[in-house]
Nucleic acid binder design. Structure first.
Length: 484
RNA sequence: GGCGACAUAGCCAAGUGGUAAGGCAGAGGACUGCAAAUCCUCCAUUCCCCAGUUCAAAUCUGGGUGUCGCCUCCA
């Protein structure tokens, strides 16, 4: 398996530090608002990485933090007149609602800054003691000039950065690019005690302290968005390697941006779409499918039209699944015919290509293409079986299994306890009553058709259609589904 | 100003030396009362432009054009 490593700027063969086990850390959101689509991309992508590694048989330890102490949170809390810690906590809960909807698995640990002050202060102290950090008026700064490898992740030199520095230089810093490990408390801000007085952690130190705490000094994969390469991850490396004296994360992975009209989506530009808003209009599996349809390192342009085109594509997969489940119910014939054998072999080839695609730096776009190939092959088989002797039990079982396998990695559809794919999340209000009513209408329409009253039949179908209920007349009877 | 990425059909998008996956949209046909779903067939002699390397390039090299990103909080 090959992984593109930002650190070396090339694909490398993946070999975890401990055979069979993978330790990974993904930078999570700062919780001062609902998450937007740009936040969702790394969530969904790295969740897929995790799922694939597990599918490959690795035991994965997956950590994703919440930044719940931060300037943006404090500012937001001030505007809302709410306690910052409470506000952050609220948005952590909201985060889970969105992430769960997108079928993102929970991390093994979701550490919060507010619960790791001891670890953070401990690491800052180590850096001060080792001479990598200095104290000025209760602030603690990292002295980047002391760290020889500074710039190795983002591929820039200290000189380049000094020339390009756009920020007003704080005269108290030894180097303009020195960054805060610890910020002295200001009036009215939450603060914690430390050897340097009351204050709070700088942004970068939390990930260093927490990742090392849960995964050790040199874990396998560290992930996040492209924009974290500099300064966040560069600084993490400087801090952690200086503190531990060992190399930090081994593979650095970064996902590309979501753009709107080819421009970066970001909170600062104000052109962002909340996951919550998008999920009001589209089912979550479409959003997830859309995110995985492009390679993770490429930019992905978002608009409603593209999402709905993706949804129309995903519908093919759903239809195939429905047809498959229906075929299984109509007592398939035992044994393995030549056609059955051809399908089973064809599907094995798809699985092998799917694995190859994912092995090549998690090429989910190619993997999705292979899913469609499998769907086309299954549909053609079902189509042929319909006019001949019927489908074979073993072939159908294999087809269902392959689609489920692909789904377990891509995480598009949620599954029930028995491992079955859930296609329609029926809301509680629906179910029995609605289904009963629809059956009554379908029967009325069938009677109309029987007496060739097509005007009535079509009218009933159209009216249901307006409510998002789609009827399909098949040789085996009428089938209905919800739109989307 | 420094550094970097990308440019493939109407749209989205794989493919990084061997002769263009897949999806959406579209055209024709089968099935159907009509639809829908599904199946079959078609839909880029060509991969931003120019030059070069090679038996062979969308893929490598050089130059140009365009778009985007990072250098400041940001996934």
């Amino acid at each position: 398996m090959q992984i593109y490593n930002t650190l070396t700027r090339q694909k490398e063969e993946f070999a975890p530090r401990e055979p069979g086990k993978v330790a990974m850390y993904v930078c999570g959101p700062t919780t001062y608002n609902f998450i937007h689509l740009g936040n969702a991309r790394p969530l969904v992508f790295f969740d897929t990485v995790r799922r694939y590694l597990q599918y490959k048989g690795y035991k994965v330890k997956y950590i994703q933090n919440f930044t719940d102490i931060d300037d943006k949170i404090i500012n937001r809390a001030r505007e809302e007149g709410e306690d910052p810690i409470r506000l952050a906590k609220r948005y952590v809960e909201e985060y889970y609602r969105d992430a769960d909807a997108l079928n993102v698995m929970r991390a093994d640990v979701h550490p919060k800054v507010s619960e790791h002050l001891d670890d953070i202060v401990g690491m800052v102290k180590t850096l001060v003691d080792k001479g990598y950090a200095y104290v000025v008026d209760g602030d603690v700064y990292y002295n980047i000039s002391r760290f020889r490898g500074y710039g190795k992740l983002s591929g820039r030199s200290l000189e380049d950065m000094q020339a390009g520095a756009r920020v007003e230089v704080d005269r108290r810093k030894k180097h303009p690019m020195d960054f805060a490990l610890w910020k002295a408390a200001k009036e009215g801000e939450p603060s914690w005690t430390s050897p340097w007085g009351a204050g709070r952690p700088g942004w970068h130190i939390e990930c260093s302290a927490m990742s090392v705490k849960y995964l050790g000094n040199n874990f396998d994969i560290h992930g996040g968005g492209f924009d974290l390469i500099f300064p966040h991850h560069e600084n993490e490396i400087a801090q952690t390697e200086a503190a531990t004296g060992q190399p930090f994360a081994r593979y650095w992975m970064h996902n590309g941006f979501i753009t709107i009209n080819q421009e970066k989506m970001s909170k600062s530009l104000g052109n962002f779409f909340l996951v919550r808003e998008i999920l009001d209009k589209f089912p979550p599996e479409i959003v997830r499918f859309f995110l995985l349809s492009t390679h993770y390192r490429s930019p992905l342009d978002f608009d409603d039209e593209k999402l709905s085109a993706a949804g129309r594509g995903l519908e093919r997969v759903k239809n195939c699944l429905r047809a498959l489940e229906e075929a299984v119910k109509t007592n398939p014939r035992p044994g393995v015919s030549n056609e059955d054998k051809a399908l089973i072999d064809g599907l094995s080839e798809k699985v092998s290509r799917f694995n190859d695609a994912m092995d090549d730096d998690f090429n989910t776009a190619l993997a999705v293409g292979i899913l469609f190939d499998a769907v086309a092959e299954i549909n053609a088989y079902l189509h042929g079986a319909a006019r001949e002797g019927g489908a074979g039990m073993e072939a159908l079982g294999r087809a269902l299994e392959v689609i489920k396998t692909f789904n377990s990695v891509l995480g598009l559809f949620k599954t029930d306890r028995a491992g079955g794919i859930i296609l329609e999340a029926q809301s509680g209000a629906d179910s029995a009553l609605v289904e009963g009513l629809i059956d009554i209408i379908i029967n009325m329409r069938q009677e109309a058709r029987a007496r060739k009253d097509y005007a009535m039949a079509d009218s009933l179908r159209n009216q249901l259609g307006k409510l998002g209920i789609i009827l399909e007349d098949t040789p085996k009877g009428v089938r209905w589904k919800k739109q989307g």
